[in-house]
Design a protein around this nucleic acid. Sequence first.
DNA 1: GGTATATACTTGCGGTGTCAAAGATCTTAG
DNA 2: CTAAGATCTTTGACACCGCAAGTATATACC
Lengths: 165, 165
Amino acid sequence: MSSQVLSAQVTTEPELGAWIRFLRAHAAVTRELSARLEAQHGLTLSDFDVLVQLYYADGRKLRRVDLARTVLLTASGITRLLDGLERAGWVAKARCDSDARVTYAVLTGAGVEKFEAAQATHRADVEELFGSRFSDEERGTLAELLGRLPLAETSPACTGEGENA
Amino acid sequence: MSSQVLSAQVTTEPELGAWIRFLRAHAAVTRELSARLEAQHGLTLSDFDVLVQLYYADGRKLRRVDLARTVLLTASGITRLLDGLERAGWVAKARCDSDARVTYAVLTGAGVEKFEAAQATHRADVEELFGSRFSDEERGTLAELLGRLPLAETSPACTGEGENA
DNA sequence: GGTATATACTTGCGGTGTCAAAGATCTTAG
DNA sequence: CTAAGATCTTTGACACCGCAAGTATATACC
């Protein structure tokens, strides 16, 4: 192959350097990663993200609002995403006795299997395209630095606890 | 345990920690940033990205393929994006004498003005939401670490020179 | 020249995600 | 109780972008 590519031309601007790299890195890595996830398991990155959250959630269910907030999608985004997972039979709806407005998203048995099947290869892919580029220490640094970025401004209301029935 | 907001619940998994943070940070920052860019200048992040590249390019023009590679969009993505910029009068097409297949994207006078107008506020926004979170040194570290990620696998072909009229 | 292959660009189609608006339910104040 | 407002969810309209396929041009080899 030829030496360097034009793609390396991130040097347009000094101040935005890190930001541009951030954008490009995200575009490149997620493109490849989601292509693999789609090909191997028929899942979107967001789909997977939602499955992870549900899998590790208490009772394997979560309110849709909370899901939206942690995965950083809008409410309508979550509705449509879950639509797909529900059609596939991996997630089901559950009503909440104490509050008729809320609907839970519950991981079904099939959903658990699906996640466990997808998990391994996806984890390996992330490791290959992302993690393996860094030492453990660097990984920590990266996580710490990225963790400083604002996650969401939306009024937290900071409740945190929604008790179920 | 409710103290922290749910949004902070990135701790689902140890190994994917950095990756998840990366995803979330990107989603949150770009969402806010593109909202502002849209509100203030009617531009997309990708639009702006393209304008930057053209602005600093030699002769303020670039082949569409090259543009696609540096901005990390597919060929069709670039076509549609430039469609918009052309309709707005900020970018124009230019033919290439030496190769009839290629079309250049050229920044027009209006495009230059548009970019210079947008640049200031956008740069400030990036600084506020991204840059200001880090010291100069950290910014460098971040840029270096992110720079290790694969940008694109697509065959380079590495031509680089297309002469104009 | 003629044919095959690679490259540049466009177009149709579909998926994903946002915003704005609407519907349903809960909460609070008078 | 009732009205006002907040919260949870869904739906419609729309933007963005990738993939696959198609067209046009260029290059290489016979």
